[in-house]
Amino acid sequence: MARKSLVGVVADELLDRIIAGEFPPGTVVPGELELSAKHEVSRMTVREAMKTLEAQRILSVERGRGTFVNPLNQWASLEAVLRAASEGTKDAAAAIQLIELRRMLETGACELAAERISDDELTALKDHVEKMQAAHEINDLPAFVEADLAFHDVILHASGNVFVAVLFEPLHRVLEARRAETSAFPEIQEHAIGHHRKIAAALESRNPNEARLAMDAHMQQTLDDLKTYVLEA
């Protein structure tokens, strides 16, 4: 067990260096001798750690050339991709793809929720919007992000589809990090509050199509704001 734990530690440390940009996609990672000295472990431990990352398609071995870092879109580990998205250097493609994923899942969840949401959940949605408004007025970014995430969480669970909520759970950390990045702009906060009010009203009408369209409009505004305020900054 101790050996496996050490291998895991070295694999995590090497992944951290990759995510930090020390070894960009397409570059060769150092050899076993250099890595064993850097991490103060045996070459066998390094070899097993690299095999772990190779199994996750983070690294690929080319005989006679070395071990290369693969592009993020080839990685097979959800945990590693989420770590890269939340901790790595700014990646415009990853930020946009995250919104695309949210759009696919959340518009459908909102459509389902329109016919299934309870009165208590509708009340909770309105409360979260008011908390967003209050946080916006006093420039309390953490409180704004917390209320924003809570609003969407109510809808995901109100959809009544257990798979939707489970799929979104691993995304919570990266969503929190991205929300803190985008919601730092007062203009984006104002847009979000307006769209959240429309989503709550559409859900209260119990009209699935209106609910889907309201959420889709919010996702489009989120994408537009990301490109205008964050990626162009």
Rank of each mutant, 00 (worst) to 15 (best):
L112N: 03
P186W: 06
A20S: 15
E48M: 11
A49D: 03
T107E: 08
E137Y: 08
M104A: 15
T52C: 11
H39A: 10
R173W: 09
S159H: 04
D225L: 01
P71T: 07
E40I: 13
A192M: 06
H191V: 13
E176C: 08
P24G: 06
P71A: 07
Q133N: 13
I188H: 02
D225R: 00
R103P: 00
V145D: 02
R65G: 02
E115H: 10
A85W: 01
S77Q: 08
E146V: 05
M215V: 04
P142I: 07
H128G: 00
S42H: 07
L98T: 01
V166I: 14
E48V: 09
C110N: 05
E62F: 13
R197F: 04
E111K: 10
L53N: 01
I188G: 00
G66T: 07
A37C: 10
V29H: 00
R179F: 09
A201K: 05
D120I: 11
S5F: 13
S42W: 06
H196D: 04
A158C: 09
I188Y: 01
M44N: 15
A233P: 04
G160Q: 08
P142Y: 06
A37N: 14
L105H: 05
T123W: 09
I99A: 03
K131T: 08
L101Q: 09
